[in-house]
Structures are given as C-alpha cells and as structure tokens.
C-alpha cells in the first residue's frame, strides 16, 4: 500500500501496523464489510416484501390464511439458525431439481441415490465450468434469499399486527365512502399501518444487523471468516508479517464495529419515529403535541 512497506522486516511500531493493516488480505476483510452492508441493503426490502405478502395472506379467508399464519408461526418455535442451515441446502436442491426437470427430461435415474443428490450436468448450479465469481455470487444470492425468507416471517408478524392496529373506524369510513375491499386496503389501511409497524420493524432491523455474522455459517467469506483467517498465528515462513494468535483482537474489533453500527441505527431510527409520529393519534404523537404547547 504505502511506499515504505517494501521491506516489512525493517519496520516497527505504527509504520509496521499501517503496513500490516493494508495488506491484500486485510483489503479482503474491509471488502467483506461491504458484503455485509450489501446483504443488509438487499435483504431489508426483500424481507419486507416477503413479510407484506405473508401478512396479506394471513388476512385472507380460511384456506389461504393458513399459509400466511403457518409462515408466521414457524419461526416462533424453531431456532433461526436451523432455518438458515436448512434453507441453504434445500433451496439449492430445489433450484437444481427444477432445472433438472426442465433441461433433462430424458434422464431416467433417480435423483436421490442413497446419500447423493444427482442431477444431470446441464442442471448443476452453478455450472461446473463456471468461473469463481459465479460460484461466489450464487452462494451469496442463496444466503440473501434465506435471510429474506426467515426475516420475512418476522416482518410478516410485525406487519400483521400493524394492520390489525389501524383503528376499525378508519376502515368503516372507507366502506361508507363506497370503496371496494381492494381500494380500502391500499388507500386507507396500508398508508396508516406504518406508524404502528415502525417500532417492530426497527427492532427487526437491529436483529437483522446482529444476524449478519451468520453469513459465515452459510458458507460466504464474510467478516467472521476473514477475522479468523487473519487473526490466526502466522510464522515468518509464510508471511512477511508474523504475529501470534490475534484472533481475540480481531473479534474485539468486530464487536466494536457492531456496537457502533447498532448505536448509529438506533439514533437514525429514533429520528424517523419522531417524524412519523408527528400529528398521529397515538400516545407518542400526543406526547409530542403536549411538548410543543
């Protein structure tokens, strides 16, 4: 990185540290911080969409509402990590199975042969001759989809509650104006539910931030992976920057990173909440009104 880094053996103190922290592998660590942010940026809206569909489905009539309610109820009783580990394999097999059905109709052997899951070569995901980045992108998108499904269930729970929290009078008024079910849902219920949903959703955002290290379990090379790699003790034979086992300090750094991140989100979410409650007929809005008088 810096010009004086050419011969690390001669360095000491801060200059050694500055060279050490800017090696190529450390760049991978910083780059994987970006992966975490990317995951959050994609997962949050995707989970919200899943949750919205789940909540909508839970509000419908009996046979259809079972799907939504089961989706919401499942995450209550089962550890989320089990879902993560399950969906990564299950989704992968589902996609390969679907491609297998579409691409190799004349395949006659069973797909599950004992302890193996065998599909034809054309149906493999990613294809066996694909380059490294395709594998990485595929792994990452599986992880994103898994996160979206699990957190979609949490979001569905929050949104379902928020939809029911909108005062009944509002919906009755909409009906009195002659709006159809669909119109009153989209024009009255949905715009009003967000203020009721926001406390739950901001809680969910915090939980989502704290769930990002689980990417490591899904086989993505994320910050946990690189912290373990870089922190392990290095001898002078393999690297220009030998050091003892520093994994503790790397994970201490991660701890601080997450603390700062959650604190920052907390402050931002409080601001949004203050803005949204402005003028609403909730206790928060009432408190704001009284404070300004």
């Amino acid at each position: 990185m810096f010009s004086y880094c050419a011969d690390p053996d001669t360095l000491s103190g801060l200059s050694w540290l500055s060279c050490y922290l800017t090696t190529g592998k450390h760049m991978m660590l910083y780059y994987s911080l970006g992966t975490v942010l990317l995951l959050l940026a994609i997962t949050a809206p995707a989970a919200l969409a899943f949750g919205f569909m789940g909540a909508m489905s839970a509000r419908t009539r009996a046979p259809f509402s079972w799907f939504g309610k089961a989706y919401i109820a499942l995450v209550r009783g089962i550890p989320d990590i089990a879902f993560f580990l399950f969906f990564v394999i299950a989704l992968d097999q589902l996609f390969e199975w679907m491609r297998h059905k579409a691409l190799c109709p004349d395949w006659d052997q069973p797909i599950r042969q004992g302890n193996d899951f065998v599909v034809c070569d054309a149906a493999k995901l990613p294809l066996s001759n694909a380059s490294q980045w395709v594998h990485e992108v595929y792994g990452f998108s599986l992880a994103v989809l898994t996160f979206a499904i699990v957190f979609g269930a949490f979001a569905a729970n929050v949104l379902y509650g928020a939809m029911r929290a909108v005062p009944r009078g509002q919906m009755e008024t909409a009906e009195a104006y002659g709006m159809s079910q669909r119109q009153s849902f989209w024009r009255v219920l949905v715009p009003q539910m967000w203020v009721y949903a926001l406390p739950g959703l901001s809680n969910l955002w915090m939980v989502l931030i704290k769930a990002t290290p689980l990417l490591f379990l899904l086989g993505v090379e994320d910050i946990v992976y690189w912290s373990r790699e870089l922190g392990g003790s290095k001898t002078a034979r393999f690297t220009a920057y030998p050091h003892a086992d520093w994994r503790m300090w790397y994970f201490f750094g991660l701890l601080v990173f997450y603390l700062l991140f959650t604190k920052f989100s907390e402050v931002v979410l409080e601001r949004i909440m203050a803005r949204l409650t402005h003028g609403q007929a909730t206790s928060g809005g009432e408190a704001q009104r009284k404070a300004t008088i």
Partner: peptide, 22 residues
C-alpha cells in the same frame, strides 16, 4: 447491557472463545 445487547451473540461467542484461549 449496551455491549451485550448491541452486538451479535455469534461474535460474542467467538470473542469469548479466543479470550478464554489466551
């Protein structure tokens, strides 16, 4: 309370394990 609620349990486990190792 802030430290333990503001950081992921997963990272706490890792940090704890390596702390105990040292």
């Amino acid at each position: 309370i802030f430290i333990f609620r503001g950081s992921p349990l997963f990272v706490q486990f890792f940090f704890g394990y390596f702390l105990f190792l040292s």
